[in-house]
Amino acid sequence: MSDVSQNSPTGVSPYHTVIEPNQSWWRLDFRSLFRARDLIFLFVHRDFVSKYKQTILGPAWFVVQPILTTGVFMVIQMLGNLGSREVPLPLYNLAGLLAWQYFANIVNNAGATFANNANLFRKVYFPRLSVPISVAVSQLMTLAVQGLFYVVVLGAYVFLTDAGKNINASWSAILLLPFVVMHIALLAVGFAFFTSWLTARYRDLTFLLTFVVQLLLYVTPVIYSLDAVAARLPDGWKWLIFANPMAPIVEFFRHALLGVGGVYPVSYAWSVGLTLFLFLAGMMLFQRTERTFVDSV
C-alpha cells in the first residue's frame, strides 16, 4: 500500500484530522496505529540491535539469563525441598521461565512507557500505543530464542540420559501454546498500561517497577509448583495462589512441555477474565494519559 496521497486542495484528504479536547473515556486512533506498523517494526529492530551491539555474547544473552536463573532456582529448590521429583530440575525451571520471562520482560520494558519516553513524546506525535506493542513483539523474539534453547536442552536429556522416559509432553496442549503466549502478552501489556499510567503521574514509582516484578515472581508458581504450595497453605487461603493470573499459565506451560503440573479450568477462566479487564481498562487509562501527558512533564 502506498501512503502518499496527492489530494486536490478541495478534496478531503485521507489524513483529515480534527483536533479537539476529548473527555471521553475511550478514543483510540486505530487508523494511525495501523499506519504506524512500519514504526513498530523499526522499534523492534532498534531494541534488538541496540541491546546487543558491543556485547561479547550478543544474542546469546537471551539464553545466558535463563541458564543463570535456573541455577539460582535449583539452589532454592534444593534448600526449600520444592520443585519436581519427576522431571529434571533444569527442564522444569526452563519451562516455567519461558512463560514467566516473557511476562516480566514486557512489564519491565513497557511498564513506564511515558516516563521513559518523555523526551521523545514531547517532541513528536505518533500513536503512543506503538511503544508497548513493539515491546511485546520484540520480547517475542527473546521467547523464540529461549524456546529453541529449551528444545536443545530437552533433546540432550532425552537422547543422552534416561530421564527422558518421565517426560510426557502433551502435543495437544503444545498446539494451544501460541494462544497462551498471546494471553501472556495481553496480560503483560495490560499490566504495563496500568504501571505506565502510574509512573507517568509519579515518576518515583519507576524505580519500584523492577522490584515489583521480582516480588511477583515469588508469588507465582515458577520456582515451586502450584500443588506443592497449595498443599502447604491452610484451606481458607488456597484461593490466594489461584487468584494470581500468571499461576495457571505457568502451570499450563509445564503441563504442555513436560507433562507435570495441572490444568486448572476455573483458575484459567478467571485469569482470562482478569486479563481482558486489565487490558481494556489499562488501554483506556493509557489513551487518556497519552493525550495530555506532556503538559505535566
Binding site: 489524513y15 484530522t17 483536533i19 479536547p21 493525550r291 495530555t292 501527558f293 506532556v294 503538559d295
Partner: peptide, 12 residues
C-alpha cells in the same frame, strides 16, 4: 502532542 482545553482545529 497535546490537546487543547477547548476549541477545535480541522486539518485537511
Amino acid at each position: 502532542i497535546t490537546e487543547p482545553t477547548s476549541g477545535r482545529i480541522v486539518m485537511n
